[in-house]
């Protein structure tokens, strides 16, 4: 069982959260010329690496906020959590 520290609510069990995937993926900017490749990268292509991974989770059974979590994808160790609006440094 993962324990995730919601920046709004504190430490909660994984059961309260749902997963939202890679947090580093950026939607192509509005109003700009966007190539097919850019859309592909946004919609489909993922690095999905072993090791440290910034990802989105939603505290669905809590404050319902989206948050960013830095987790190791092979040990499940969680290093850091941020509010959705906070930038990954």
């Amino acid at each position: 069982m993962l324990h995730i520290k919601c920046p709004h609510c504190g430490m909660r069990s994984q059961n309260e959260f749902s997963y939202g995937g890679d947090a580093t993926v950026k939607r192509p900017e509005l109003g700009k010329e966007v190539s097919d490749q850019d859309w592909d990268n946004f919609v489909y292509n993922r690095k999905s690496l072993r090791g440290k991974h910034w990802e989105l989770w939603q505290h669905i059974s809590g404050c319902r906020q989206w948050i960013k979590v830095e987790r190791d994808t092979s040990t499940h160790e969680i290093f850091n959590t941020l509010k959705a609006t906070e930038e990954i440094s």
Partner: peptide, 13 residues
């Protein structure tokens, strides 16, 4: 399990 993983072992939930 529902989130990216290379753990080769799962979680109870």
């Amino acid at each position: 399990d529902g989130y990216n993983s290379y753990a080769q072992r799962g979680n109870l939930p």
